[in-house]
Simulated assay, not measured.
Amino acid sequence: MDPLTQGLVGATAAQSGAKKDQLRPATFTGAVSAMIADLDYYIHIPSDPLFNIEIHRQFSHSFIFIPVGALIASFVLWWFLKRYLSFKELYFYSILGYATAGLLDTFTSYGTQLLWPFLDTRFAWNLISVIDPVVTVGLLLLIGLGIYKKEKQYAWFAGGWLIFFLLFGWFQHQRATASVKNLAESRGHQIEELVVKPTIANQRVWRANYIANDIIYADAIRTGLISGIKIYEGQSAPQINIEEDFSDFEGTLMYNDLLRFKRLSENFLVRHPDYPEVIGDARYSMLPTRLTPLWGVKTDTTKTNTHLPFLYFRDASDEVRKEFLRMLLGR
């Protein structure tokens, strides 16, 4: 999730296990420790743009790295908190905070390698958006009250607040998944791969992508509570088959990068409608009904031994915002 929410959840975990007289330094320790895991975002190899995408949410978010990550956080924080906590206490609160980082990100999309290095699978449960202001504000208020009153019962309330939204997300996800399966069946499609995930900052409008007969479909599912389910049918586009479409370049650096991007995108690959040389991740777009990818790699068959550039395509125009708002409000 976003760094602020990540820190607040780490603070919640540390605060819940803190002694009353150590509640404030424990809260700070948990918050910083949880955010340290996301420093992997800054690991780059300039000549290999895909490396940063692969390394993010990898080793630093795995279960096995928790003791190491907490130790790093403890060494960093020791110079600031040694007047308030022993190193043993500091390490304990760091573990509580750092342990939340990988697990929390798993509830969002993109994928987290919790079992690295034993398994390179990216787990993504798609229950909550990477940015959800309602969740964040609730956590901020409850953690703030805990710090102000030096009462860790507020940390339990904060934990309950987060669990409520995760359970609500699971319930909404199940409804959206069932709806898109019914939609595909009504179209006469046999779903081969399916991804359903929340759109930005809410658990009402869900983006559904599925593959059927080498075609990728994008639809929006609005899961209202009183108004029920509303479906906004979206675009479709041919799925890119790397092994077939680029077979002439097998063994080149370009081909290997395409296979890497295929794995990162779970094989949801489409060509950008405005830039045919760009192969994008069909799971992410500014609107849940569109297949204009937010990011992708640019192919150049004249430079097959050079790593592929990784490009972003963001369109936050008034038209896009109004269309998204229309779906969010169920119009």
Rank of each mutant, 00 (worst) to 15 (best):
A282D: 04
I53A: 14
L294I: 09
L140I: 12
G159P: 09
A158N: 08
F63R: 02
P117T: 06
F157E: 07
P238I: 10
L264E: 13
V180N: 00
P117K: 04
P3N: 09
L287Y: 08
P293D: 10
T12Y: 09
F63T: 05
Q190C: 01
E319M: 02
W125G: 07
A201G: 05
A220K: 08
L140H: 10
I95S: 00
K262Q: 15
A37K: 03
E151T: 07
I240F: 05
G169I: 04
M1I: 06
D120Q: 00
S33Q: 05
A13M: 13
Q172M: 11
D257C: 02
G69L: 14
I191T: 04
L115R: 09
W170A: 12
L287W: 07
Y232H: 04
Y93N: 05
I211R: 12
W170N: 10
G102L: 03
H189V: 05
S129V: 02
Q113E: 13
M35P: 00
S186H: 09
K19Y: 11
D105Y: 10
F168S: 11
L264I: 14
N241Q: 12
Y154K: 01
A155T: 04
D214A: 13
A178C: 01
D48E: 13
A124D: 00
M254S: 06
T301R: 08
P238H: 10
N126Y: 10
I279A: 01
G234H: 08
L8S: 06
V196P: 10
L311T: 12
A31T: 02
T29P: 12
D40N: 05
P46L: 08
G159I: 07
G138A: 07
S47F: 08
T27K: 01
D120S: 00
G7N: 03
L85G: 08
H307T: 02
W170L: 15
L104A: 05
S247Q: 12
W78S: 14
K82M: 06
I43S: 01
V137S: 00
A237Q: 15
Y275V: 10
S317G: 09
K230G: 03
P25V: 03
D40P: 03
L328K: 09
M327Y: 11
D315Y: 06
E54W: 15
K322F: 11
I128A: 04
V297S: 11
P293E: 10
F168H: 15
M327S: 03
F65L: 02
F118D: 06
E54S: 14
P49W: 05
A26S: 10
